[in-house]
Amino acid sequence: MNKRGSPEKGRQLVSGTKGLLKTLCFTMMSCALLVVSGCVQEPTEQASVKDYIWRLSNVLDYDYQIPPVNVAAYPRTRDLTLKVSDHSIDLLDFLAMTGCQLQITAGQRNSGLGRVMSNSQSFLYQWRFIQESGACLAYLKDEDPTLYQTLAAVVEVKKAELSRYAWLALWGGPELKQYFGVSQQWLSPQQPLALTPDTYNIVLDVIAMDANALKDVALYETAFEEALYEFQLMNTGGQWLATLAGLTQYLQLGTAMLTSETAQRLCPKGKVTPKAKILKTVFDKFYIGQVQPYLSFVHRNSETWWQQQTAMLEVFTFKGPEAFEQFVSKYLNQDRHDGLWQRYERAQRSHVVAWQSVLRQCGLMPGA
């Protein structure tokens, strides 16, 4: 018998340790290969829908291939520009505005950092300029009538174009580009779709503000930037579009199976066949039990989201850049016949009708 601490036992411990390390290394390499090859577990919702379609195909002997779901990317930054006037105070006029807070604000705009302002910062600058111009105009009216007229003209242009700067701050900024970024991930039922009331309200209040009755920019600027940042932290818009596009594709495929020749011959002369009973199990357990709850989640959460998006679009009375309008028409217009939402709704209705037809011919309609 080996004594405690003997060389033999030491060799066994080393051997065991090496074996464990080899096992761990092998496991880690296997996991890495799975990730690299894309063989990672899909979210439950996507997997459930795919499993449902696969089961349908097995029962109905239907061969199929699923092409990748295509959702167009949000327009590129260079395609999200709006024409605004280059109307500003020249250097001599700027130097003559001594005594106006506006001189400091304009000076910050012309600094190195000011020349590379983000879209949101540029909008807030225009807002602040208009707000501070009131006191400056009152001061200049008697002190320098000529400069007063010059500044008044500049302010009128900025007021007229403030909504264009607001559009650029929201729809033309990096935050919405991230929010609507292309995604392969579907929404989870635990994931909120609509914006939080605080975020939505502050964004809508700011972009809808009347340029002739501006509120104090200092009360809103931080909250507005934080609301935009919330967009940038999420990819909810992109996941929502991926969800609708993916569901539409799978539902259309399932409908093709249920309206196939095999399905139509499933119950000759209304006689229930073993295959029909299996299909009814697929209907009860996988369509009603797994897919339908997710479709219900999509509908329950869509109404508020559509209301928010529509309101943020309809604030602006002018058309955006062409690429943006095309994106809106295809993905953000709830009522457009060939838009994503209407195509999804048609796919869902057609799928229900297809199920009703098959189950009715077999006398298997629920309650029958």
Rank of each mutant, 00 (worst) to 15 (best):
P366T: 14
E156M: 04
S329M: 00
Y52F: 15
D205M: 09
K275M: 07
S37D: 13
A211S: 14
S329A: 01
F318G: 03
A72Q: 10
T255Q: 12
F316L: 02
A311M: 07
K18G: 03
K285P: 01
Q252K: 15
S118V: 10
S350P: 02
T317P: 03
Y62W: 14
C31P: 01
Y148F: 13
Y200N: 06
L124A: 11
L137T: 12
T199Y: 03
D338H: 00
P192T: 03
V154T: 14
A208E: 13
S183V: 10
N212Y: 11
Q103S: 12
A245W: 03
Q149H: 06
S30I: 14
A242W: 08
D144S: 11
A138K: 07
S48G: 04
A213R: 14
P67S: 10
F129S: 10
V49E: 09
T236Q: 04
R164D: 06
L102F: 05
L34N: 09
N201A: 08
F297Y: 15
L147R: 08
L92T: 11
A135M: 02
E322Y: 05
Q249A: 05
P189M: 01
V217Q: 07
S296M: 12
A211L: 06
M365G: 10
I130Y: 10
P145A: 02
G367F: 00
V71E: 14
K3D: 13
P75S: 04
L258H: 06
K3Y: 09
L332I: 01
R11D: 11
M1V: 13
L24P: 01
P366D: 15
P145W: 07
Q342S: 01
Q239I: 08
Q326L: 00
L247C: 04
P67L: 06
K18M: 09
L24C: 05
L359I: 13
A47S: 14
L233S: 04
D338K: 00
Q356K: 08
P43E: 15
P43R: 12
D86M: 06
V282P: 02
V155P: 04
D198S: 15
A323L: 04
D61K: 04
S329K: 00
T243L: 07
Y165C: 09
Y64F: 10
K177R: 13
W167A: 03
Q103T: 13
L251S: 02
Q252S: 10
E42Y: 01
R265M: 08
T23R: 12
K18F: 09
D205N: 15
A368H: 02
E225Y: 01
K18V: 15
C136R: 10
D51E: 12
L233Y: 00
F94L: 12
G16C: 05
T317E: 11
L13H: 06
F297V: 01
D338M: 00
Y179E: 05
A347K: 02
K9I: 13
V36F: 07
Q121T: 13
V282E: 14
L60N: 09
T281E: 12
E8W: 03
A354N: 06
L92I: 09
S30L: 12
S188F: 03
E221A: 07
